[in-house]
Computed example of a mutant assay.
Amino acid sequence: MKWFVLYEFICTGIRNRWKVIESQLMTLYRSPFFFVFLYLFLYGFHCLWNWSEFMNINRNLELSAINSGQQVSLWSLYPFQIVSVLLVGVLYFLVSLSINLLFSFGKKAKETFRTNITDFFRSLTRQFFQFVCILFIGNQCLGFFQYRIYYSVLVVMFWTGLFLFFIIQNGELYKRLFVSSDRSVSFLSHSLGYVNPILFMFFVLVLANV
């Protein structure tokens, strides 16, 4: 009987602890910075796992720069390349803010934008680093097919799917946030959510060439 009571006590404790952990994980997942932390973790793990290879790449870059009489940018070396990604993220937020302010026609649209600017930046942070995480994981997976004949087809399919995914996410974000109190449809809520993916693709190209 005592063993049964002890067993029930242990199981109850485990269930309660699991509920607490599950609740904390869900809170973290809903955070706008979840994908920021996830990307930092993935990038850090990737660097540690391939540390010797990356150090060889760094040495080769430094030797090539010395032979050509040039200097190596710190941001082109591992693990400092992540700084470039973070800077691109900051630039993306600033340009998005500028475009939204530029196309907030009328007093009503500007008021709607000012009211939702905090939620906008939180959602934009989540979307941007969600894209970065998918891009990072996708590139790692595509690396296994680099020497296959159909590699280029996979790359095109991956980028196209990622672009369409962002269009849907961004359009839904603008429709949800930038609707005025009288439910009127403005250029900001109706069209700009589909214009920004073009801007986003520009930063994708920047990321790809970092």
Rank of each mutant, 00 (worst) to 15 (best):
F4T: 01
V5D: 07
L6A: 14
L6G: 05
Y7P: 00
Y7F: 13
Y7E: 00
F9A: 10
I10F: 05
G13H: 01
R15I: 11
R17A: 14
K19R: 13
K19V: 09
K19L: 10
V20G: 07
V20L: 14
E22I: 07
S23C: 05
S23V: 05
S23P: 02
Q24N: 14
Q24R: 15
Q24T: 10
L25A: 11
M26W: 10
M26K: 14
M26N: 09
T27C: 08
T27N: 11
L28N: 07
Y29D: 05
Y29G: 10
P32N: 07
P32V: 08
F34E: 00
F35K: 01
F37H: 12
F37G: 11
F37K: 08
F37M: 13
F37T: 08
Y39F: 15
Y39P: 04
Y39E: 02
L40Y: 11
F41N: 05
Y43V: 13
Y43S: 09
H46F: 14
H46A: 09
C47H: 05
C47P: 00
W49L: 09
W49A: 04
W51R: 11
E53G: 07
F54A: 05
F54Y: 14
F54K: 07
F54L: 15
M55L: 12
M55P: 03
M55H: 07
I57T: 04
N58L: 07
R59F: 05
L61W: 03
L61Y: 04
E62D: 05
S64W: 06
S64P: 03
S64C: 08
I66G: 01
I66L: 09
N67T: 01
S68K: 12
S68G: 06
G69V: 00
Q70R: 14
Q71H: 06
Q71G: 02
V72A: 00
S73P: 04
S73I: 08
W75G: 02
L77W: 07
P79A: 06
P79C: 08
F80M: 10
F80K: 10
I82C: 10
V85N: 09
V85A: 15
V88Y: 03
V88R: 04
G89C: 12
L91R: 06
Y92H: 04
F93L: 15
F93W: 15
V95I: 15
L97T: 00
S98W: 14
I99M: 15
I99S: 12
I99R: 09
I99V: 15
N100E: 05
L101M: 15
L101H: 06
L102W: 14
S104M: 13
K108L: 09
K108D: 02
K108N: 07
A109Q: 00
A109E: 00
K110V: 01
K110I: 03
K110N: 03
E111S: 15
T112G: 01
T112K: 01
T112P: 00
F113C: 02
F113W: 06
T115G: 06
I117G: 07
D119R: 15
F120V: 02
F121S: 04
F121G: 02
T125S: 12
R126W: 13
R126Q: 11
R126N: 11
Q127F: 10
Q130T: 09
F131E: 02
V132G: 01
C133S: 08
C133R: 03
L135R: 06
L135A: 11
L135Y: 12
F136S: 03
I137N: 06
G138M: 05
N139I: 04
Q140W: 13
C141E: 02
L142A: 04
F144I: 09
F144K: 08
F144V: 10
F145H: 12
